[in-house]
Simulated assay, not measured.
Amino acid sequence: MNQPPPARNPLVITDRILSEILATRTRRDDHDGQTNHPDYDPRDIDIVTRREYQFRADNWASHNAERATPTITGGRCGYGHPSNGPHPHTAWDGLLLEQAYATLAEAHPVRLRARLMDLAALAVAWTEDVDRRIAAQAAVYVPPATHARSGDGAGCCPHTIPIGPGSCEDCWDLVKWDLLGGEQQ
């Protein structure tokens, strides 16, 4: 039986994330200039380095397969109680590490590029998941009345109480800032 894909939260927009990535890349290029590095430390023995990375990729693949196998767990798990039945424990850390090590193990430039694109897509997917968690908290967030938009200096937008779909970029940034406790990350 085909189920419809899960609805996407309107606050989680891949284009927004990709725009942030582009802005970050631009800032880095402006600061450091264009960077060109070898794929590996030239002092390393290429085949040994790639085999080590492949070993780590295989290890994380095995670990992720174990995490994906539904099990019944007790107190440590977010599902908490065995009455919830078997469930998987797949997590972003393992998925990213497996993909990163598999990418590092790749020798052929075209396949390396394809793996880097997969790794970047996985990082974007994880970022979207983090944004969904932020959006869940933002749904009840009320910004301070002193907030002013950067574009025109106006006070809080009428759509910002609470932050929701269609909120401006400044309001979205304010939520992220306040949820970090005012600490720049």
Rank of each mutant, 00 (worst) to 15 (best):
N2Y: 12
Q3F: 12
P5G: 00
P6A: 13
A7P: 01
P10I: 03
L11R: 13
V12N: 06
T14R: 15
R16P: 02
R16H: 03
I21C: 03
R28V: 12
R28P: 00
D32F: 14
T35D: 03
N36I: 14
P38H: 10
D39K: 13
P42A: 06
P42V: 08
R50N: 07
R51V: 05
D58G: 09
W60A: 04
S62D: 15
H63R: 15
H63A: 12
N64A: 03
A65V: 01
A68Q: 07
T69F: 02
P70C: 07
P70M: 06
Y79S: 11
G80T: 06
S83T: 09
G85P: 02
P88Y: 04
P88T: 05
A91N: 14
W92R: 05
G94Y: 09
L95T: 13
L97E: 11
E98K: 11
Q99G: 01
A100S: 11
A102N: 07
L104F: 09
H108Y: 09
P109S: 04
R111D: 10
R115M: 10
L116M: 15
A121P: 02
A125T: 07
W126D: 10
E128K: 08
V130F: 02
I134W: 05
I134P: 00
Q137E: 14
A139Q: 10
V140D: 11
V140K: 12
H147G: 02
R149W: 07
A154W: 03
G155R: 08
G155K: 03
P158M: 02
I161C: 10
I161M: 08
P162I: 08
I163Q: 04
G164T: 06
S167A: 14
C171Q: 06
W172Y: 06
W177F: 15
D178G: 02
Q185R: 15
